[in-house]
Design a protein around this nucleic acid. Structure first.
Lengths: 142, 142
DNA sequence: ATCTACATTATAATAATTCTAAACTATTGA
DNA sequence: TCAATAGTTTAGAATTATTATAATGTAGAT
């Protein structure tokens, strides 16, 4: 049984038609050990260069957003100039390497539980996320 | 002594020429009790509607970025679709109201100190910021 | 096999931001 | 004071990221 079958099933489960393009994108995004952080641009490049799969840019946008809506992907706000997505959809924190522009997931144990003392009346907390910006430690940095 | 003098001096101190446009923007941004969160769009509207000051869009971008570089403003990443700026340039956390798209500063006492257990070798921590997303608490929400 | 609803595609449209090059202005110092 | 000059503003063009459109294609149901 080829591994694609998993993706076909998973797509069907959430009500997304398992089209050629979506299955291909699943392979690129979810056949990984570690979580994957990417921009739409990264993904288009990966698909065309590594997978030799020409998918229209509009489809990549549509599909990424479909995946996001169905909980397969999560959008991360780090840089107002581009959208990052994360294959790890659980609530978790990030390190952001300002030298390489690389995102790194935090494990649960990396950051102690955040204690929030303030309450906004009539509002409930949807998420609490920490972003730790890091950069090169040497003296000669800019 | 008109209050503008302060801004003229301040601009000069950091090496920015105190032009008419910059001083006007200072008045809009920094003559406030509370910190101010805004997008470029908000600012352009404020300048033209409230202050009756027509400033070219390019100048608003230039000036906001000049202020940011000199530490007068801080950019906040919340929404990948627009850039928010904050007149509070110290390290601090935010609430983000997902209903109104409003940003609210946290006081020091609102969130306990964040304890980071992980170390990225060769990298130092530049900042640690928490974003708490809140939304309406009622049952009938979307 | 056929139908229908949903997907994909190329391309156009939009929105946010940056670039360009000409006109303008604050500062310097003769 | 006044010109020189270096930095600034401006309108508009260019660029980039993203979304909309409308025609064509395809998965799933009958």
């Amino acid at each position: 049984m080829p591994k694609n079958c998993n993706f076909i099933e998973k797509l069907r489960e959430v009500g997304l038609r398992p089209t050629k393009q979506r299955v291909k994108m699943c392979e690129v995004l979810f056949n990984r050990e570690k979580t994957f952080h990417f921009t739409i641009n990264d993904l288009v490049k990966l698909l065309s260069e590594k997978m030799n799969q020409k998918i229209s840019l509009a489809t990549v946008y549509n599909t990424v957003h479909a995946f996001e809506k169905k909980g397969y992907l999560k959008e991360i706000s780090i840089d107002s100039h581009k959208s990052y997505f994360d294959t790890n959809t659980s609530a978790h924190h990030h390190f952001f390497d300002e030298d390489t522009h690389e995102l790194i997931d935090c494990d649960e144990s990396d950051i102690d539980k955040i204690n929030i003392r303030k309450n906004i009346t009539g509002k409930k907390i949807n998420s609490v996320e920490v972003l730790v910006r890091v950069a090169s430690d040497n003296q000669t940095q800019k």
